[in-house]
Design a protein around this nucleic acid. Structure first.
Lengths: 310, 310
DNA sequence: CGAATTTCATAACATGAAGTTATATTGATT
DNA sequence: AATCAATATAACTTCATGTTATGAAATTCG
């Protein structure tokens, strides 16, 4: 005996509402429709589900038991509805976001924390990726969006890129570093100190190489390499090391971690930090929400940077 | 967004089975039917439920979440099916049975205990009633069956009566009662001792009155009245009291409770203990099961009585 | 107790989702 | 690259469910 779950739903609704008419109303159906379906069900299982000749329809023993199962079905259906509505409104579901490690850890993690505070039912699946890999994953729909530095011109039509900050990098050091506070720096100064190298394939590393090429100083002491942002910061604040970091990361961390930026700008001025998405398929509502949230958050950060610079 | 629970079932089946084809098979439906239903559902909620371009169909985030609800629906449906099957086979549900208090407590309670051991999913709703009340309730379908003493001839066509034992009553006393063991008794003997009166409106009481009328002894000392069988037995075994009890009750209890029957038979010899049911409507399977079980049990009891009498 | 009211069942018909088989398409596999 | 298996689509049928209108029965109330 296989039941149509809708029949059990009707049964539960009638029992719960205390009558066929109210039960039908609760389900948004007409009374005769429900009446016929229940009659059909009773004949199919060869059992009365409601006491005969009782006008406020009262369930029999088995009617009550089956109605309990029906109630579970009703509740599962309601849960599913709530879930689907949440997804449609962008307040439930998941967002798959990736970005360069240092930037994700230094800035985006804070944004994610804020976002989760407002949308606790949205899960953020974060991963680390550089531009090439991120674009691949976005194209394969393994990723909803990526937050990373790019030159907008270099992009294929497949992608959309929404810039949020200038992608400039700076040389970072601890606040009481011998070089900190100097108005100008000679290129020979910076190579006297040990360096923390960013990951070998990262944009930061390329920028650093380009910078050293430019000042014709190919010899640098690498004192530390391969660490995450936390490790980099610890080494940075406990030694005279220098490293190259996105300005936004230094800005966000400068108070808490006593990090300073030297007056040297590094990297392509045409490059910007931005949000990379796929242009074609319309993204899930959750991803759109997160994108909007991130952008508004960065507007605030931009203002803070401007205020601090003034 | 209101879901058709069948869609959620399909979703769950596909996810559980690991593919659309197997899922359809699990539900006993054709593959195209399920495919189309899922496609329909995806368009309705505007969300993909399965990753596109994946051949062993794999659920998306939301697909998985909705499938979990679907699983609950599937399980509720399965539970309902098991329940309905149980009821149809008479191994689940309830039986409403009534009978005279002394007889129910003394004999039927043991039968019920046996029955419940074999059918733990059948609930026995027991109540106490004499013939008149029992017939009313059976006619109103508030009762499935009654077990009580009746003269079969007096019955209307509405009822069926299946006799299980002669309905004879005896005078009961404790085994070491002064009268116990005597081969014959004079009527004056029995009125010397205090009596325990059965409930005033019970057949036992009427039989006792008829008996006393017959032996022309209208004066009897009533020492105790109004108690249940347990109380009656306690008084009986702790004093020289006499009372009238169905023979079957005395028989069942004589070993455990040291009760004896005096060689005096009381009551209408044309009356029999039997099972009273309604003839018209076909009874629920559970009631039929219980009736059959009770009758077979009484066949055994009858053999035991015969063996003990020999 | 009978009338009014509520509540459920039935009738008649329309609609459309879901069932079917046959076939095309497209990832996956070797 | 070719084959295989899994899924999607097409075309069509069927039947449960939806509708409104109405009848019947039980409950309530004056």
């Amino acid at each position: 005996m296989k039941f149509d779950p809708r029949h059990l739903e009707m049964l539960a609704a009638i029992v719960e509402a205390g009558g066929l008419t109210e039960g039908a109303a609760m389900l948004g159906k007409s009374q005769p429709s429900v009446s016929r379906s229940i009659a059909f069900l009773e004949r199919r299982i060869g059992q009365r589900l409601f006491e005969p000749k009782r006008r406020p329809l009262r369930p029999t023993e088995i009617g009550l038991l089956l109605a309990q199962e029906g109630k579970r079905i009703l509740e599962a259906g309601r849960a599913a509805s709530a879930l689907a509505d949440g997804v449609a409104r962008g307040v439930a579901g998941a967002v798959r976001v990736a970005g360069t490690p240092i930037f994700m850890d230094g800035v985006i993690s804070g944004v994610i924390a804020d976002f989760q505070g407002r949308h606790p039912n949205v899960r953020i699946d974060q991963s680390y990726a550089y531009a090439e890999e991120a674009m691949e994953k976005i194209a394969q729909d393994l990723l909803d969006l990526a937050i990373l530095p790019l030159r907008p011109g270099t992009l294929s039509d497949e992608f959309a890129f929404c810039q949020i900050l200038p992608g400039r990098n700076v040389i970072a050091c601890r606040t009481d570093h011998p070089l900190a506070g100097r108005a100008t720096l000679k290129s020979t100064d910076v190579v006297r100190y040990p360096w923390i190298a960013p990951p070998a394939n990262s944009p930061l590393f390329h920028d650093l190489r380009a910078f050293l090429d430019r000042i014709d100083q190919r010899e640098m002491k690498i004192g530390f390499t391969g660490g995450s942002l936390t490790a980099v910061l610890n080494v940075l604040s406990g030694s005279d090391s220098l490293t190259v970091l996105p300005f936004s990361v230094v800005f966000m961390l400068q108070r808490r971690n006593r990090i300073a930026a030297l007056p040297v700008e590094i990297g392509d001025p045409n490059r910007h930090l931005g949000i990379l998405t796929r242009r074609s398929a319309k993204p899930p509502m959750t991803a759109r929400r997160f994108t909007e949230f991130t952008m508004s958050r960065f507007k605030e950060i931009e203002r803070e940077i401007a205020a601090a610079g003034a």
